[in-house]
Structure formats: structure tokens, C-alpha cells
């Protein structure tokens, strides 16, 4: 059994890009329900999941924003996105939901170099 229970869940896919985002968030929620301290890192297109005021997808597709909004209820309050990704996508921080912390390259590297379980979606 590992000593560190600090789970890092990485989201790399935009909303409605298959079911990656939904099933990645499900894994994060279950981790939190199991008492793990969960940190979410949104990389690449995954950062689009954090856009506030986004709509549901194609007819019948469930919106993912309500799940993002309720993460805090599960004590998942570490929502990170690399600043470089925000720059690449031309996304100002104000366009994102509350509570997102941008990370520098150095901080992202530090996250990966710590010995912790990681799940990638």
C-alpha cells in the first residue's frame, strides 16, 4: 500500500469529446468518496471543461459543467491548469469557473515529480 493517498487526476479531453471528461470526473469523485485527497489538472483541450456558462452538447448529451460545479461538495477544491495552456487557448482566467489555480511550468513539473498515484483521461 502506498503512503501517499493524494490522487492526481489529469483531464486531457474537451467536453463532449467521447466520454473522457465525464468518466474522468467520475474517477475523481470516487477517489474523493474513498477518502483520497484529489487534485484535478486540466491539460490541453481539457481546460475547456472549465469554461463557465458552457451549454449542453448535441441533443441528448448531458452537460458536464454541473459536475465541475459540484466538485467542491466532494472536497475537490484543487483545480489546476497550466498557464501555458490558458495562453495557447487564449482563455482568460475570468472565462473559467471559480476556484481555478493556474500553474507555472515549474509547478506542473513538481506535480509530476512527486510520488503520487495518477490517473489520465
Amino acid at each position: 500500500m502506498r503512503e501517499s493517498e493524494d490522487l492526481l487526476v489529469i483531464i486531457r479531453h474537451a467536453p463532449h469529446d467521447s466520454n473522457w471528461l465525464r468518466e474522468g470526473l467520475d474517477a475523481a469523485l470516487v477517489g474523493a468518496a474513498f477518502g483520497q485527497s484529489v487534485r484535478l489538472l486540466f491539460m490541453g483541450q481539457g481546460a475547456l471543461a472549465l469554461c463557465r456558462e458552457q451549454q449542453a452538447g448535441a441533443p441528448g448529451q448531458k452537460a458536464s459543467l454541473p459536475t465541475i460545479d459540484m466538485l467542491e461538495m466532494y472536497d475537490i477544491d484543487q483545480l489546476n491548469v497550466p498557464q501555458r495552456v490558458l495562453d495557447d487557448l487564449k482563455l482568460p482566467l475570468e472565462a473559467l469557473v471559480d476556484g481555478v489555480t493556474p500553474l507555472s511550468e515549474r509547478q506542473v513539473k513538481a506535480l509530476f515529480s512527486q510520488n503520487r498515484p495518477i490517473l489520465n483521461f
Binding site: E5, Q36, P117, N120
Partner: peptide
């Protein structure tokens, strides 16, 4: 089984390798 089983597997193993 539930997703909890995935987290348990990750905790039990020295390495969890993803094929996505």
C-alpha cells in the same frame, strides 16, 4: 464492479499502467 476497485488496484500495486 465499481470504480473503487480501480483505486484499490492502484493502491495495491507498485505500478498501474494505463493503455488508453
Amino acid at each position: 464492479t465499481g470504480l473503487g476497485q480501480l483505486l484499490t488496484l492502484q493502491q495495491r500495486c507498485d505500478r498501474l499502467i494505463t493503455f488508453a
